[in-house]
Design a protein around this nucleic acid. Sequence first.
DNA 1: TATGAATGAGTTTTCATTCAT
DNA 2: GATGAATGAAAACTCATTCAT
Lengths: 211, 211, 211, 211
Amino acid sequence: MRPENNPVGQNSRSFIETARRAQIVASAIEVIAEHGFAGASLARIAEHAGISKGVISYHFTGKDELMEEVVSQVYADTVRYILARMEGQETATALLRTQIIAGAQHMREHRAQVKALGEIFSNLRLPDGRPRYGVAASEELFQSLEHIYRLGQQSGEFRPFDVRVMAVSHLAAMDNMFAYWSAHPEHDLEAHARELADLFEHAVGARKTRS
Amino acid sequence: MRPENNPVGQNSRSFIETARRAQIVASAIEVIAEHGFAGASLARIAEHAGISKGVISYHFTGKDELMEEVVSQVYADTVRYILARMEGQETATALLRTQIIAGAQHMREHRAQVKALGEIFSNLRLPDGRPRYGVAASEELFQSLEHIYRLGQQSGEFRPFDVRVMAVSHLAAMDNMFAYWSAHPEHDLEAHARELADLFEHAVGARKTRS
Amino acid sequence: MRPENNPVGQNSRSFIETARRAQIVASAIEVIAEHGFAGASLARIAEHAGISKGVISYHFTGKDELMEEVVSQVYADTVRYILARMEGQETATALLRTQIIAGAQHMREHRAQVKALGEIFSNLRLPDGRPRYGVAASEELFQSLEHIYRLGQQSGEFRPFDVRVMAVSHLAAMDNMFAYWSAHPEHDLEAHARELADLFEHAVGARKTRS
Amino acid sequence: MRPENNPVGQNSRSFIETARRAQIVASAIEVIAEHGFAGASLARIAEHAGISKGVISYHFTGKDELMEEVVSQVYADTVRYILARMEGQETATALLRTQIIAGAQHMREHRAQVKALGEIFSNLRLPDGRPRYGVAASEELFQSLEHIYRLGQQSGEFRPFDVRVMAVSHLAAMDNMFAYWSAHPEHDLEAHARELADLFEHAVGARKTRS
DNA sequence: TATGAATGAGTTTTCATTCAT
DNA sequence: GATGAATGAAAACTCATTCAT
């Protein structure tokens, strides 16, 4: 019986448990990235990890918990990666460019994670059939992008525009940059990112572009 | 046994056959739009259409052929709809705006089709497990958008930029405009489309915007 | 897709469907009687019937529906059998004896059914874990037995006593007569039934025993 | 490796071992009583006892041995309880009444044990699929009841009747008194027991009933 | 002694597909 | 042409049991 809830201040999981969960999550990411959400059966994930099917059931309540664990790990990683690189940027324009460039770097380095995240976002459903993560799940990301856009509008760097539309389009463009690169591995991701940064810089009507 | 390939000069499908296929395709669209790709079993599609499961198997080689039929019908409709509205536009800027605005109109009027198309695009796989329609499937759309962008660059309306990146981002922004509106039905789709048109007009550095 | 609800006045199930359901129910009865409730997996029931597992799923919503169908068929049979033999009896004493003797006859002739019924009654549970048929499920039987006892009390044949306790004990004694006979097939069921009839005749303090 | 068979003259189990087994048996009783035989997984029993699943496997050869241990403990308790109260009774009629009344008291005080016993009796199976405890398992009880009945017949208190049928019915009536009370907790168990005593007193044709 | 971890057999259920009528 | 019926593979999940530490 794996302990589910335990007293505050105690590490909830043993070292080995943490390692196994991480291993399973990693295997799930790779399998989803390669075979898609529907192709990622527990059997395949277990086989890919070189363990028995039962191990997954032992460490996770069910497939849903595994998927949610993948999401929360990848999501946290991604946000941390990008925010770290945005630190210290002062102008909204710089923040904007950095967000895009750093996002592309992250995608290159974590190709499978990003792909798996996308698959889960658009396929995982609640027991009642409604999407588990809808576009609504991106709300947090939208808001952090809107923050940048509003900053630029307040400082006068950016023209007036609807920040929500800009954020939605921004996220969409980044997701598809990744998808396009996944489908065309010879495509130059860095160049794409720079072009995209230019695109949004113009879109926001930035008064001064990078020197 | 239904004849699959038949002599030239004969209409390949009878009237009744065509009608049945259309009925099944329509049912498939609605079911996919409501329940998602994974939730769209043949049983559900048949039930929704008020016919027996066997009919689908009779008229289609298999589920895959049905899905591909959905794609080709919806795809053709969409292109026809938007191209019709773009006819007569003279400047690249006008073409660009029209493409976006008309696309939004089409989405509003064909909500289920658009949603089903997206589901199939991102979920249907070849027997070997590779995606049936990757981003690569959008190649045709990319090229038609690139055509507009190149036109603008040649006429001097647009600044220089990588047309492929612009096209990928353009399509992404439109797809997600739809997804966002689907998740937030109270969202003003027309306003979003106008904002998006402004966004790309600025992004391409259009010399003269609409007044 | 099997039709679930259909217009009034139409036979709901085709001939073949009815036959298959009956065949599956019969197989289920035999398997439960032999292997017990827990040993009656769908796989075993299907194998015993010489059909594929899927057939059961095709004709029944799930295992629960099959079990409930077994109950309702066997239950109806049993009640019909015994009531038919009780018809025409005039005194409460005669009704009482007949109920017991006819019950024993029915058990002998429908050994597996009775056993299966008992297994399902004491093992089938609702999704939430509560028993599907508790002792409460015997309420109907209790009442029909109480009817006999009250008749005897009103006619002065029987002494005063708590009819519910008498009915509960009566049913218990019959169930266990069957169970005992099942475990000791050489046991004389008819003689047991006659003894049991005597037992209850004395228990109710019958003024005049059978001539 | 826990020693299974050990030299004569040694206490076969250490104090701690005995305590653990008792704790596990107690937990098993409660879980079976609440969730039924099928719902009593080792995992649930361990969790309920606040120990790890492995402990059960360590102290018992397997689930079957645990179940048999439950049976033998509860059975011994029950017999001891009732026999103690029957001591000193002189007439067969008094013994009969006492057996029933004391049985009811025991049920009230050991509700979970009685329920668990019933569940195990009717569900536990040998590896080959045959019931581990059939009605045959009650042989000992039958004989002790028959002893009372024969006593009454020899002393002339009771009429002639088949003592085995009387014993089987007696035990059945008591089991179901408990089951009925379990399903209807507001039911008056003591009153039921008194009625049952009257029932059997009349059934045996007792010459002098209690005033 | 005790435990967490792992295993693999077995359960129900879903589903695309095939086929006789 | 259309349908009901049947199939069997694959899915997620449960569970008693085993084992190294």
